[in-house]
Nucleic acid binder design. Structure first.
Length: 608
RNA sequence: GGGGUCGUAGCUCAAUUGGUUAGAGCACCGGACUGUCGAUCCGGAGGUUGCGGGUUCGAGACCCGUCGACCUCGCCA
């Protein structure tokens, strides 16, 4: 078990005892080594005490080797007193295990080392967190003793996987002609997007640096500087609240940008990289081969009720507004008159399931804050639920439109378009989970394309950028001048895998006059653009190539490959949900002297 | 900031649903055992049931408050 996921040894196998701590690592010895005197070092993983015979499972990064000490050995006394997770060095002879004593679960299971000397290098206190076994432990204990947690098999393997994935991404990007550059960490705050992490300036009273939310403007400047294809495993910082798939504070992206490209060129460049790295670490899971399906944002919202659809889920939502429009089912017919739509979620072969399945799904929708989910359950072609209210003609129309089988079920979400899509999307996921329809052991990629450039902000009652303000609007200046802003699409795209948004990207707006116009529509005048995006807008006045790129999230890629539901499982030293590092004690107070130098005063009474 | 779940030994969990002295496994300490690999067997120590208040003859359980963790909404161009 241990050792299989870990890389092989860097240590020579000559068996000489020149090295102070070890001649071999703990995953290295085999039957061929029987008879050699060896030296090993590592942690006491398990100890089995038979009174006159002791077994120690000695563990290091590479694996586990069984060490045996019997009563006659001078090493017996010290070994007997060893505590778990203490660090020891042992010296002894490699011996063959008897046929009945071979451990087939261990790469080193055919041998063991009979210790003649055991030295305690570092004693371990009683553990707050057992290293052996696969039990789950509370997050706060795990984070506080992260170094112990990282010794554990699963987490240790995850971090090795992470390193291998990053190495693979780097190699594939370089092979594809990209050049890696480092962009600044201390930079300027930007008005759009997430909340910035600010860093006070000592030399400039009252001014602040910001940590980059992404190297967005720098990578575009690299294109203006003529580097053609850039990438970076880029640290990004956003002061937003955490989620299971969103680390608070900081995360990494495979940030890349390309010159003289269309949207399709960007897709063609990154698809083989993502396919390649997912295939490399798939462990038998299937991966969507390039080209990945392209789905327009509008279609995604209609068919999947989400702009990050999980294509492992075979269910598709159908708009059935016309089936209900002006019909006898008054609740829906009335709602449609005032602008609602009806979206139907099929539940294949669920018609014969207990009524509780339908009722509990309806109750779930209500608990989620929606009006509820109406349903029809077909049994041998006979419709229950709201079928009677709807009448046979319209039911037949529905069956035809959705190609429903004689024992299928179907749910209906009726609401204003945005809410109906959201509920239908959530119901699609829930129904597929309940019916166990979600494909296993696969990575299903797609592109979501044609995002709207702008959207209407109800709260502020104005047009705002819906995603990235630096995207090129489809139709360029002509569209900005002549179309309804809410109808304008952008050359903007997301990569989605198994319902997880891996990245967003865009063909950028590289023309100053279009940039000014685009910002004007969102309510920023030229001076704001000049001030806030000075570096970039200025550069665009001196010959900017058409360019575009994207930035897949590295943590999320590793999460998918490691099959971990929580992003902290693939990060070495993550912060907790409140953005605290429990091990290092961050954030922390600073000295008065530090604050004085920065001319910063703490206002109000901070919590102790 | 809102909502949800949870909080019992160092760790994982239990406590017949309000009833005697809060139990078990792992870890720890002591003892037995020469072939285990989650070793086994015997014994020991370990608890302000997160904290504060309330209801009750009686609270780990019920109520109120509070603290903390996680999940989630808002937020994340």
């Amino acid at each position: 078990m241990v050792g299989e996921t870990r890389s092989s040894s860097p240590i020579g196998s000559e068996g000489n005892l020149m090295h102070a701590y070890r001649t071999h690592n703990c995953s290295q010895l085999r039957s061929e080594d029987v008879g050699h005197i060896v030296r090993l070092a590592g942690w006491v993983y398990r100890k089995r005490d038979h009174g006159n015979l002791l077994f120690v499972d000695l563990r290091d990064h590479y694996g586990v080797t069984q060490v045996v000490v019997d009563r006659d050995s001078e090493a017996f006394a010290v070994t007997e007193g060893l505590k778990l997770e203490s660090v020891i060095r042992i010296e002894g002879r490699v011996t063959s295990r008897g046929a009945e004593a071979v451990n087939p679960h261990l790469p080193t299971g055919e041998i063991e080392v009979r210790a003649v000397a055991v030295e305690l290098l570092s004693e371990a206190a009683e553990l707050p967190l057992p290293v052996f076994g696969n039990t789950d432990y509370p997050e706060d204990v795990r984070l506080k003793y992260r170094f112990l947690d990282l010794r554990r098999e699963k987490l240790h393997a995850n971090m090795v996987l992470r390193s291998q994935v990053i190495a693979s991404l780097r190699r594939r990007m370089i092979d594809a002609g990209f050049t890696e550059f480092q962009t600044p960490i201390l930079t300027a705050s930007s008005p759009e997007g997430a909340r910035d992490f600010l860093v006070p300036s000592r030399l400039h009273h009252g001014k602040f640096y910001a940590l980059p939310q992404a190297p967005q403007m720098f990578k575009q400047l690299l294109m203006v500087a003529g580097f053609d294809r850039y990438f970076q495993i880029a640290p990004c910082f956003r002061d937003e609240d955490a989620r299971a798939d969103r680390s608070p504070g900081e995360f990494y992206q495979l940030d890349f940008e390309m010159s003289f490209v269309t949207q399709e060129d960007v897709f063609a460049a990154i698809e083989p990289v993502l396919y390649g790295v997912f295939d490399e670490f798939s462990k038998g899971r299937t991966v969507t081969p390039p080209p990945f399906p392209r789905i327009a944002y509008k279609d995604a919202m209609l068919r999947y009720g989400s702009d990050k659809p999980d294509l492992r889920n075979p269910l598709e939502i159908v708009d059935v507004t016309e089936v209900f429009q002006g019909g006898p089912f008054a609740v829906f017919a009335k709602a449609i008159e005032s602008g609602s739509v009806v979206r139907a979620i099929p539940a294949p072969k669920a018609g014969t399931m207990a009524r509780s399945f339908f009722d509990s799904t309806n109750q779930w929708a209500r608990d989620e804050g929606f009006a509820g989910l109406a349903y029809i359950n077909f049994k041998g072609g006979e419709g229950g639920g709201i079928a009677k209210n709807l009448g046979p003609e319209r039911v037949a129309q529905l069956v035809g439109k959705m190609k429903l089988g004689p024992n299928d079920g179907v749910f209906f979400a009726c609401d204003k378009p945005a809410n109906a899509a959201k509920l239908a999307g959530m119901a699609r996921t829930r129904v597929a989970q309940e019916l166990d329809l979600i494909e296993k052991n696969s990575f299903r990629f797609c592109w979501i394309v044609d995002f709207p450039m702008y959207e209407w902000d109800e709260l502020e009652q104005r047009v705002v950028f819906s995603h990235n303000p630096f995207s090129m609007p489809q139709g360029e200046m002509d569209a900005l001048l002549h179309k309804d802003p809410l109808e304008i699409l952008a050359y903007q795209y997301d990569i989605v895998c198994n319902g997880i948004e891996l990245s967003s990207g865009a063909i950028r707006n590289h023309k100053p006059e279009i940039m000014y116009k685009a910002f004007e529509i969102a309510g920023y005048d030229q001076s704001v653009v000049d001030e806030k995006f000075r570096g970039m807008i200025n550069a665009f006045k001196f010959g900017a190539p058409p360019h575009g790129g994207s930035a897949p999230g590295v943590d999320r890629i590793v999460m998918l490959l490691a099959d971990e539901p929580n992003i902290r499982e693939v990060i070495l030293f993550p912060m907790n949900q409140k953005a605290e590092d429990l091990m290092m004690g961050a954030p922390s107070n600073v000295t008065e002297k530090q604050l004085r130098e920065l001319r910063i005063a703490i206002v109000g009474q901070p919590k102790p």
